[in-house]
Design a protein around this nucleic acid. Structure first.
Lengths: 198, 198
DNA sequence: CAGGACGATGTCTGCGGCTGTCATCACATA
DNA sequence: TATGTGATGACAGCCGCAGACATCGTCCTG
């Protein structure tokens, strides 16, 4: 055993999440994770660029999903609609298996370094969505604004969804995302009505 | 000399920015920065939590300015207007001395770790503005959305301002921020007109 | 003006994150 | 059976960062 056990990366990711959740991120050593997965510290760093990255194992596929959803939105849909649809698609996937998402969020949210990395990932998502919007013919500025705004809405809404789960009353994540988007639209609309010239 | 030279923190920040700009962030050692400021590595870490933080020396005052501006917005102003006013206030201050801002941006933008820290600072700004909006009576969700959207607009617009300066054609940062806000409002408005029920 | 009190700095020491380098192992393939 | 290839282990080392303690300047007090 030891060497050549399959799926080293996945084992490391799983062991890391468990240990981070049990004893905290800072209190967990890279060597400890590796040992827990039957591997070496050196091998850990071959699979993950750093100790944080292991918590963002599946983020590439999320990015792909976002880009596909933006590209696949109806031709008549505006940039905000395309972004909203992409966020809802991701929300639906996450909602399928909420437990790992909640555990991961619990670990990330209590640590500064991990929150930073999370923001960086969301920034990657925004950049990718902006590029996908430009491919749809959306002008540069509108594409960037819509994509960045989308991730902002996602941040706020996901946090509310998690908090809501804690009290077992809030439910459908895609619907929450839709509602938040609508709310932000209202915030802008109200402003335009009451301060048209500002 | 050496000990008791005034303004150790400021000297360290200045030396760090210079060295980071000259030879890159990763290639610069904390001990090197300290030596360049006539101090010790240990003293460097007494003044700054880590090697990145030294580049965000004045961020506390920016946060104060944002909060004050949000709180001081006209009572009738909506959340988006208050946030927009706060961003413009910061933009005006930054524009007063654009050189350090540009140099700092050049250093930060080429390094992953520094971009992450920048995003974390902006997230702090958003949280502070959201709190200031709640103090104005804005409901929780609208406050968070407006504040996060504001920092999203800032990110996009500041990058464009810097890029524009490179070609010496774009100018007033507060005005650019106002225009971006208006553009994002249009993106939402257009969407509401063409897809009222979505 | 002597004598602390106190905060800022220097020195020493050590852990952990992360990397380069090379040997070694499992497996596929000829 | 030999050999190539990619994944892993073993070893060494740098640097970020922190704890502990000595030392130095400044200021306050008697």
């Amino acid at each position: 055993m030891g060497r050549w056990e399959p799926n080293a990366r996945g084992r490391l990711a799983k062991a890391a999440l468990t240990l981070y959740a049990e004893q905290g991120f800072e209190q967990t050593t890279a060597a400890e994770i590796a040992r827990s997965a039957g591997l070496t510290e050196r091998t850990f760093f071959r699979h993950f660029a750093d100790k944080r990255e292991v918590l963002f194992y599946g983020s590439d596929s999320v990015l792909d999903l976002l880009v596909q959803a933006v590209a696949g939105a109806p031709p008549a849909a505006g940039p905000i609609d395309a972004v909203s649809a992409a966020l809802q698609a991701v929300g639906a996937v996450i909602q399928e298996t909420p437990e790992p998402a909640r555990l991961r969020y619990a670990v990330v949210s209590v640590n500064q370094e991990l929150r930073e990395r999370e923001l960086a990932k969301l920034a990657e998502f925004a950049a990718a969505m902006a590029a996908a919007l430009r491919d749809r013919g959306v002008p540069e500025l509108a594409a960037s604004l819509a994509a960045e705004t989308g991730t902002a809405v996602y941040r706020v809404t996901f946090a509310r969804w998690i908090a809501g789960q804690a009290q077992l009353d809030l439910g459908d994540l895609p619907e929450l995302l839709r509602e938040s988007m609508a709310e932000l639209g209202d915030v802008f609309t109200d402003r335009l009505l009451s301060f048209p010239a500002s």
